[in-house]
Write a protein that binds this DNA or RNA. Sequence first.
DNA 1: GCTGGACTTGACGCCGATGTCAAGGCTTAC
DNA 2: GTAAGCCTTGACATCGGCGTCAAGTCCAGC
Lengths: 133, 133
Amino acid sequence: MRIGELAERAGTSSRSLRYYEQQGLLSTRRTASGHRDYDESDLRLVHQIRELLAIGFGLEETRPFVECLRSGHESGGECPASIAVYRRKLAEVESCIDRLTEVRDHLREQLTAHCDAPMTGKESPCQYRHGGE
Amino acid sequence: MRIGELAERAGTSSRSLRYYEQQGLLSTRRTASGHRDYDESDLRLVHQIRELLAIGFGLEETRPFVECLRSGHESGGECPASIAVYRRKLAEVESCIDRLTEVRDHLREQLTAHCDAPMTGKESPCQYRHGGE
DNA sequence: GCTGGACTTGACGCCGATGTCAAGGCTTAC
DNA sequence: GTAAGCCTTGACATCGGCGTCAAGTCCAGC
């Protein structure tokens, strides 16, 4: 199939597919006239990439998964290098959650301090609600 | 004081201070010779900006806090517009935590599936540990 | 007055994944 | 053959908060 069809079936754009190829993640098979030519296995690769990107992986981090699939494995995540990325990503996500949790608590404290503290007699700033769009 | 001193006292760089000014967050007072001239109140503004940036605010989101301080308030966070930003940010952070929590669980599942599942007889991919640097 | 350091403005670079535009080649149906 | 619609490569734009370099100005001490 050609790039437009692959893009549509994978839920992405031709531009992105060319970029993945430029990064060495996709093949470079061409028709006689120079058009890119893909098959179902390429669709699987792109699906794998998109899934990982969607959960916050960087493109480079998808490489082991792609190579794992390419080497004939059923799942892109079952190779050692993929497992290593999973581990690293898990650690990153956990520390990110920790930081965000601290930030969340800090924000709550600030809101509590400025909203629930006894007002100085003027109107409460907390009656202000910005329009949720 | 001049920009270098303010930068050092605020724990940032001259470049950043000029950028904040360019964004309309800092004053444009100048000495006769054209050098920027700051006082203690500017230091407070920069401290406020840096604190908010450090917990993940965008520079633009610090504006209400800066204006709040400029208008004579004790705390940059006690004005209605600042409260609104706090609220919005809290909501953002909470939804971000939710998403990351889902991602974390997903990653744990993947690791469990590929590591704790009965091995097919070959070596376990999970013996691979990438060097923590 | 001279030198070195701090200052000024202006501008480009970065990162990551992608949008978008340009100019041209291929394909397909009519 | 011709028009429309796909494809090709190449390159510039985006976003945010700066780093960094360049060329010129100012200030303080000797």
